[in-house]
Design a protein around this nucleic acid. Structure first.
Length: 426
RNA sequence: GCCGGGGUAGGGUAGCAUGGUUAUCCUAAAGGACUGUGGAUCCUUUGACUCGGGUUCAAAUCUCGGCCCUGGCCCCA
């Protein structure tokens, strides 16, 4: 007996019913937006990952040397690989590049709710276009992904990092330090938060203004004027961001999705590589951590060796989605009995096999593999959840009929063989 | 890496405080009773104290450590 390794999961047949449903729904949604499916390798040069995320990440991932002494790793996220793929065909790809991918990832970290060491994640990215429409399209696709899974207890909190960044810069404060503090706002109490900010030089007046900005939360078109008022003139970058947010808000409204969105400048997404628009998805009551997130990352392609190329996207983890679907009751119950189970009595192999082959051309059929008697064949049919049983017995064969039994109602009738085959062809 | 909760057959559990017969019950699975009919019933079988050390005449029970699960922190790319 071996135990499975920590943080990994076995998927048994019954797990695949829901998984298949979830994957199909996500792909179908992305496909309806025109996203094309890609698959990356599961191993990449370690440098591809560290270039994006820094050397410290090596402690959090599965990194090792292969037999040739190369430093490689199991991919902890998809974006670097996507970037690599885009860069190697950067010239020839028609822009925008719209790709989606369901990929497997590994992170060497402590497993906890909705987080495992090996997991699947669904990514959606638009590369090559910097526009509010691309931002909007990404968000809209994310919303439809959730809706397609029967989930509606969520809200997209949309922000733009440059607003808070410009706010700090215009007050002479280092923005990158400030971001990591802002990111902790909901995790520490008010006093601690204020102390941390004081530590990097945020004065009382500045703090009041910041608090005003961070606590705003509401429909984009209603909330944005307040942001403008508080920010005042913070420079061209901030003005661009405001315009973009305004456009995103108006697009979401026209598209009929603004009810799922709220403006929330406290979203900065840690020290991530995001450049402008960012969003994070929470359940409506914000009772849990963020469900997933995404945003614009316009510098990454260049950082990884390509020509400068704007990009926007999101990634959503499957473990958490499954949890949500189970909680909402939209995770499908496993039911996978065959449509037919063929029971035989006596020496009727030829008749049974031609029936089975004919049925298998259209549907799922099973039969006893172990030589059970009639009663035990029925038993087996019942316990695997077969919807119908067809009895092929010596007496039936002599009179050219099949006995067809509905396992749910218990009704059973004799159907002439030709008639049965005829209806099967229709 | 840090803090908390937990671990008894495949699943669910009783027993643990107060150490003491062959570890309880339900369920599941396999086989059988039934020789042209499943779900019911009955019979048989499979099957567990997470691992290791300590205390003790005796440990599922007390104690220490590891492993795993679980909630959170760090991190979240």
């Amino acid at each position: 007996m071996y135990e499975k390794l920590r943080g990994v999961r076995d998927f048994y047949p019954e797990d695949h019913i829901g998984r298949r449903h979830m994957h199909d729904a996500l792909y179908a949604t992305a496909r309806s937006y025109g996203f094309k499916e890609v698959t990356t390798p599961s191993i990449e040069p370690l440098e591809l990952i560290t270039k994006k995320s820094g050397d410290a990440i090596v402690n959090e991932i599965y990194a090792f040397q292969d037999k040739g002494g190369r430093d490689i790793c199991l991919i902890p996220e998809l974006t670097p690989s996507i970037a690599r793929m885009v860069i190697s065909r950067q010239k020839e790809l028609v822009k925008p590049v719209k790709w989606c991918s369901l990929s497997r990832h590994w992170r060497y970290e402590r497993p906890q709710r909705g987080r495992q060491r090996e997991f699947y994640q669904f990514n959606v990215d638009i590369l090559g276009v910097r526009s509010s429409r691309a931002d909007f399209e990404t968000i809209a696709c994310g919303i439809d992904c959730m809706l397609s899974l029967g989930l509606d207890n969520f809200r997209f909190h949309i922000s733009d990092r440059t607003l808070i960044e410009q706010f700090f810069t215009s007050h002479g404060i280092d923005a990158s330090q400030a971001f990591s503090i802002v990111d902790k706002r909901t995790k520490v109490n008010e006093g601690e938060f204020r102390d941390m900010l004081s530590g990097i030089g945020v004065g009382d007046e500045c703090y009041e203004q910041l608090e005003g900005l961070l606590s705003l939360n509401g429909p984009i078109h209603e909330t944005l004027p307040e942001v403008k008022e508080t920010l005042g003139a913070c420079g061209a970058h901030a003005d661009d961001a405001l315009t973009t947010l305004e456009e995103i808000g108006s697009l979401l409204e026209s598209y009929g999705m603004d009810e799922h969105c709220t403006l929330d400048l406290s979203i900065v997404r840690g020290l991530a590589y995001y450049t402008d628009m960012v969003f994070e998805v929470f359940d409506k009551r914000r009772s849990m951590r963020s469900l997933f997130g995404g945003g614009r990352y316009d510098n990454l392609i260049e950082l990884l060796g390509g020509q400068p190329m704007p990009a926007v996207g999101f990634a959503i983890g499957m473990p958490l989605l499954e949890l949500l679907m189970r909680e909402e009751g939209t995770w499908p119950e496993p039911s996978f009995g065959p449509d037919y189970f063929v029971v035989t009595i006596g020496d009727v192999e030829r008749e049974a096999f031609s029936l089975i082959r004919a049925l298998r051309a259209k549907t799922t059929v099973e039969y006893d593999l172990s030589g059970k008697n009639l009663s035990n064949q029925m038993n087996l049919a019942n316990s695997i959840g077969a919807r119908r049983v067809i009895i092929v017995g010596e007496r039936d064969v002599k009179s050219h009929v099949f006995t067809v039994k509905d396992m749910e109602t218990g009704d059973q009738q004799q159907v002439p063989m030709d008639e049965f085959y005829k209806t099967l062809k229709e």
